[in-house]
Write a protein that binds this DNA or RNA. Structure first.
Lengths: 189, 189
DNA sequence: CCAAACATGTAACATGTTACATGATTGC
DNA sequence: GCAATCATGTAACATGTTACATGTTTGG
């Protein structure tokens, strides 16, 4: 019977399918490119890599200069990843958004505080939007060589990035609208 | 020293601030209105309510006909909720979106499967969009009486709903764009 | 030399999910 | 009578976070 992996295990396999990496590099990947869709700390990643290794889905190659372990995906690992992508449905809606949850309860605080909250949300969405756009401009400008896997993976990461851009743009628009909508009550004497 | 509550505890206080409810009703609230921003199962809710009660943030009134317990928020509970809203920052970006994570790895599967995946995402976003719009149309049409808290809470839940509508709309647009973008490679001979 | 970044791991705790367990009421 | 819904709880397991713990290398 094959191992039952969670989302984290598959995410690690997906990152290793692009190129072999160390646990440290994988940890950084969760902090940067993947940060907006999934996150994981190194304390969760190292044990999970050990688990993947036990089940033959990855293997460790030569140690790097500072004692780093280079993990490589095995054919069995690739097969497991493709099965996950083709034969299982994404866990329905794992969205947990504390920022939006708070909006439901803003009627409890003074109107000026609610407005301040929305203004801050607006600023945050705009900041992320600028950052994402900068990344996109940078990535599409660079010629970017590499093996086939890496350039194909880059192509799809840009597609995901576009989702982030549209998402932040929509939510920035919403924040501005909500700010007007929230104030509407007070405008009237 | 005051209790340290997680997001769930505050979400329960927020729901109880609108009106007293039973654990069962709160469970349903997480399945419907709040489902898109936060979720919780009854097995997590009942113990958390007990914890809130222990710390005097809620109290139980008369039992309902089928042995249901009517939880009511206390002044201390309201104070704790307001403190959370005004004095703490939202946990930075708790977004976990398995559907979008998978997009990063779609280069691994045959192009027709990747396209099928995106088409399914498009359908799901459109479906939710229709559902949200229906809820908005229904809610804005109804006169909806109730106590002050409830109508103010409704006002803010509609503001949150608008975010959901704009979000699904943006992501539906993205899905359609991604479908074209993904196919672009194959079009060329 | 020393701080920052590289690099890996474990332990304790918090949160969240699935499965087990039980019983009452309503509508057909 | 019986199925669906209402109603509450616990136990076992899985996942995720914070804190503890240690050692290397590079660059200024």
């Amino acid at each position: 019977m094959p191992v039952k992996l969670g989302t984290l295990g598959h995410a690690l396999l997906g990152l290793l399918a692009m190129r072999p990496q160390s646990g440290y590099e994988l940890t950084r990947a969760f902090d940067v490119s993947l940060a907006n869709v999934w996150s994981a700390k190194h304390s969760q990643i190292y044990p999970e890599l050990a688990k993947l290794k036990t089940h033959g889905l990855v293997k460790v190659g030569a140690s790097g200069v500072r004692g780093s372990k280079r993990y490589t995906i095995t054919p069995a690992g690739r097969a497991a990843l493709v099965r996950w992508l083709t034969e299982t449905d994404p866990a329905p809606h794992t969205l947990r958004d504390e920022s939006m949850l708070r909006v439901f309860f803003l009627w409890m605080v003074p109107p000026d505080h609610a407005a301040a909250y929305l203004r801050e949300q607006l600023e945050q969405h705009r900041t992320r939007l600028r950052r994402y756009r900068a990344i996109r401009e940078h990535a599409t400008a660079a010629p970017k060589s590499g093996n086939g896997s890496e350039s194909e993976a880059l192509r799809w990461s840009l597609i995901a990035l576009e989702a982030g851009i549209r998402f932040e743009n929509a939510l920035a628009g919403w924040s501005a609208w909500a700010l007007r909508e929230a104030g509407a009550k007070e405008q009237l004497p």
